[in-house]
């Protein structure tokens, strides 16, 4: 099967216009993403995540290496019919309403008439902005802007969605909504390539991740494989009495070579606690 994304030995060197030392933003990075996969690219600020994404979108030209989207060279305009892109902190045109924004981007992709209207309505519903469809984007909150951004990225029904920090600056509720949207894209068979600082969120939605540092890919693989600690085993019990726990501890102690590292109550995350106390309380 043809990969959705195929980046081979991508290197990008920025040469300052006024002289100075060239900066190697991306160094020999290779990424292959299968159709329908959710891939997360993580790394600290300035590690080359956004440059990699921009190279894939043809916004910057690779110094060496190639980027292909479903087999098409990403520098060719036709490769973008299959791509939807949400940039980091998008602003969009404040003078347009939500519906007008989607109509504008839809028309750029060749959509017209009733099919465009239907698609606009469908996407506004998908991102939960039906009631705000006729409001100008100048009055949208940060989370709403991210969601309309996601909707515009999907307007032409692309097979690949590229999301650069999709939850940057969004509150936990908005962040969770975007996470759910990404999962719904996955259910629809859309390939997702995202980069984020929120590692927990990446962990929740991604099938595979790559860790990029100082322009180089330092680890890559299936999330389960990367996170599993090879020499440890986890047992989670419900309603276990103290004597049972003591028995288990004694059993482990009796077996040479095995060691009980920790036992206690598993913790929820602060994000889950926040959502339970806010959204779930509002909608019991």
């Amino acid at each position: 099967m043809e990969p959705a994304v195929e980046i081979q030995n991508l290197t990008k060197v920025f040469r300052p216009q006024m002289g100075g030392r060239p900066v190697k933003a991306v160094d020999q990075v290779s990424i292959t993403i299968a159709p329908g996969e959710v891939y997360g690219l993580i790394g600290p600020n300035g590690s080359g995540k956004s440059t990699t994404m921009k190279a894939l979108l043809g916004l910057v030209a690779p110094s060496s290496g190639t980027c292909r989207i479903f087999g098409a060279d990403s520098l060719a305009v036709d490769s973008r019919q299959d791509v939807g892109f949400l940039p980091e902190n998008p602003y969009f045109y404040k003078h347009l309403t939500g519906a007008e924004t989607l109509a504008f981007y839809g028309k750029l992709c060749g959509l017209r008439g009733q099919s465009l209207k239907d698609r606009t309505t469908e996407l506004l519903e998908l991102v939960g902005l039906t009631e705000a469809r006729d409001r100008h984007l100048g009055g949208y909150s940060k989370g709403m802007l991210q969601r309309i951004g996601l909707a515009q990225a999907l307007i032409q029904e692309p097979r690949l969605a590229i999301l650069d920090e999709p939850t940057a600056g969004v509150d936990p509720i908005g962040s969770r909504q975007i996470r759910d949207l990404i999962l719904s894209l996955k259910e629809r068979g859309i390939t997702v390539f995202l980069c984020s600082h929120l590692l927990e969120q990446v962990q929740e939605v991604c099938d595979r991740v790559g860790i990029i540092f100082r322009g180089r890919m330092i680890r890559e693989g299936r999330l389960d494989d990367l996170l599993a600690i090879e020499d440890q085993t986890e047992i989670i019990l419900r309603d276990a009495p103290p004597d049972l726990l003591e028995e288990i501890a004694a059993l482990v102690a009796a077996r040479q070579g095995a060691e009980l590292i920790r036992s206690g109550r598993p913790r929820t995350t602060l994000e889950r606690l926040f959502l339970r106390e806010t959204v779930e309380r509002e909608n019991p």
């Binding site: 921009k54 979108l57 043809g58 939807g84 892109f85 940039p87 902190n89 969009f92 981007y105």
Partner: peptide, 14 residues
């Protein structure tokens, strides 16, 4: 500045 150019050029727009 508003990065709206990214979203336009990321569509099939020469």
């Amino acid at each position: 500045e508003d990065r709206t150019l990214y979203t336009i050029l990321a569509k099939p727009v020469p």
